[in-house]
Amino acid sequence: MDYTDRELMVIAAAREIRDGDVTFVGMRLPLLAFALAKRTHAPAALGYFENGIVRETPSDEMLFTMSDPPNLVGATWSTSTANMMGMLAQGLVDLGFIGGAEVDRFGNLNTSYVGDWRAPKVKLPGSGGAPDIACYAKRFVIVMPQERHRFVERVSYITSVGHGDGGDWRRRHRLPGGGPVALITTLGVFRFDAETREAYLASWHPGQSVETVRAATGWNLRVAPDATETATPTAHELAIVRDCDPRGFWTR
C-alpha cells in the first residue's frame, strides 16, 4: 500500500478522535483528520472551529481554510470567535489539534520566535488560537513534521504550553486543561508519561525504526517497553483521505 507521510499523519490524528469528542479542529491536516474520523469510527464527534463554526458533519467539499464558504453549509452554529473560545474556556472541548515549529520533551510548543525573542534568528508566523487550545482543552494532540532541530530539549519560547517542566506543573500553574496526550510526527507517534509527563516513543511509522526516530530527536529519547510499528493505513482510510483531498493539496 502506497501512501505519503502526511496521509499517515492524518490517519494517525483521526485515530485520536474518540466517538462523541467535541473536537477543536484547527487548520491543515486536522481538517482532514476530523472528516476521516467522522466517516469511520467517530460519527458522533463534533467539530468546533475558532472562526465561530460548529459542525456535526464534515464539509462535503475540500477545505483550504476553515473559513471557506462550504464549511458554513450544514453548520449547526455560526457565532463569534469570542463565543467559540468561550466554549473552550468553559471546559466544553474534549480534544484540540495543534501544529508546531519547535517542540520539547514536555510537549511545549514554539510557533513564535526561534532564538531569544528580543533578537530572534527566525520570526515564525505566530500562535493563532493554539495557546488557547493548549490552555483549556481536556486533551490535545500535536501534529508536526519531525526534524532534529525542531525537536529540542527546551523550546526557546513557549507559545502553547504542554506539560511545562513536567510532573504536576500544569496543576501547580492552575492551567485548566489536561495538556498534550500525543505527538504525531512524520516518523512516529509519541505519548506522554503519566507521572513525569515526558514524551516517549509509542510507535514508529512503517519504514522507520527506534534508531531513525532517535536520530531526529534532540533530547535523550525514551521508548515505551511495548513500542511497536504504527498500524499501516487501511485502504478504506486512505480512500476517504483522498476523497477529502482529491488533488492532494494537503497530503501529497
Binding site: A82, M85, A89, N110, S112, Y113, W117, S127, P131, D132, C135, Y136, Y157, I158, T159, S160, V161, G164, W169, R170, H173, R174, L175, P176
Partner: peptide, 23 residues
C-alpha cells in the same frame, strides 16, 4: 470585547505559563 464593554481589562487563564507574558 473589553473595549466594547468600557471595561479597562478582562482577566483570563489563557496564556498562563507562556512567553507572551514576557514578550
Amino acid at each position: 470585547l473589553a473595549a466594547t464593554l468600557g471595561a479597562p481589562y478582562i482577566p483570563t487563564r489563557a496564556l498562563l505559563g507562556t512567553g507572551f507574558l514576557d514578550s
